[in-house]
């Protein structure tokens, strides 16, 4: 059964990928890319990577697609016919693929429990992390504690992306200090959509909070929560009018919030130094090691969540307000 699902998903992935190469309507290509991500997310679930699947679904088929569509709206939606037969490209790709195939010949068989990858560093995480760090979700322990420094960098990567988008596109705060004009949403006439969206929103936010604070026990964490929260706000903006959203979450506020998120993460690390540990050594933050780790992970996940949430909305603003008078 597992094999069957695996093969079906892989087949669909191949078909989607091929379709993306040939299709020239960019809108379709973007939607196909979104489907590709969703299929990947399913594949990740079959391979036990639930956290990754969650993130891929939220980011790859969610936020990426929203951004792509927003950019498409600002640019051109049809690709020109390629002027020549790309033989060189085929050659480069062919050679690269063959080299890579050659390399995989010596890889351990798929799913082999005896592969070296499972026997050196990973066992300690699986055996010790509930005792050393606490959370039953090993991914959370590694992400936030053992390799917490990577995650700090990752938070700053998303922070950087947000700032880069703002620097390149700019956000014009037209209503700073002024009352907003009446609702001019494009979706105003879609009553069903508006009502459903309104009803869904509390659940979206509730789910985001659950993902934020329950990441220790199940799949999820600050990053996914931030993305979900931001998606809720984006739905709000799409159905009820973006000016209302801009009033509820002014962009200067979000900029501050993103910065605060990064500083919470960095500050947690600095606090460990002040209390006599190494950078990001949460064990020294509280009386016992486990309590300290718990507190540390809570704080850094909070920082990640805040930054991701605000940056996602800022990016959305930047694209959606671009072509304004």
């Amino acid at each position: 059964m597992e094999l069957f699902i695996d093969i079906t998903l892989l087949t669909f992935l191949c078909i989607t990928a091929m379709a993306i190469t040939v299709i020239r309507k960019l809108f379709c290509a973007v939607m196909l890319a979104s489907i590709f991500s969703l299929l990947c997310a399913c594949l990740f679930v079959t391979m036990d990577a639930v956290d990754v699947a969650f993130t891929e679904a939220a980011v790859g088929s969610g936020i990426s697609t929203v951004l792509m569509l927003a950019a498409l709206n600002l640019t051109h939606s049809r690709e020109k016919r390629p002027p020549h037969q790309p033989l060189v490209a085929l050659l480069v790709v062919g050679v690269t693929g063959i080299v890579l195939m050659y390399g995989t010949m010596d890889l351990p068989v798929f799913g082999d429990a005896a592969a070296p990858i499972h026997h050196h560093v990973a066992p300690r995480y699986i055996e010790q992390s509930p005792l050393e760090v606490g959370p039953p979700n090993f991914v959370t322990s590694i992400l936030a504690s053992y390799r917490g420094y990577d995650t700090l960098a990752e938070t700053i990567v998303i922070f950087t992306a947000g700032l880069s988008v703002i620097a390149l596109l700019g956000i014009r705060d037209r209503y700073a200090g002024r009352p907003i004009p009446s609702d001019r949403s494009a979706m105003k006439d879609y009553v069903v959509l508006r009502i459903v969206a309104k009803m869904l929103m509390p659940f979206v936010f509730l789910f985001a909070l659950y993902v934020q604070f329950h990441g220790d026990y199940g799949a999820g964490g600050g990053f996914q929560a931030g993305v979900i929260f931001a998606s809720g706000v984006i739905i709000h903006s799409l159905t009820l009018g973006r000016d209302r959203t801009l009033k509820a979450f002014p962009h200067q506020f979000l900029r501050g919030l993103a910065t605060v998120g990064v500083l919470i993460y960095g500050g947690t690390g600095l606090a460990s130094i002040l209390r006599g540990g190494n950078f990001l050594d949460y064990s020294v933050l509280a009386a016992t090691q486990l309590k300290g780790q718990h507190l540390g992970i809570f704080l850094v996940e909070l920082g990640v969540g805040l930054t991701v949430f605000s940056i996602m909305i800022l990016m959305y603003y930047a694209f959606s307000y671009r072509r304004e008078p």
Binding site: A49, T55, V59, S64, A122, L143, V157, T160
Partner: peptide, 18 residues
């Protein structure tokens, strides 16, 4: 299953969307 690749890829996904 080995959690380490999962952690690495979580980071890589973020880099990708950025």
């Amino acid at each position: 299953s080995n959690p380490v690749p999962h952690v690495l890829i979580l980071t890589a996904i973020v880099v990708g969307v950025a």
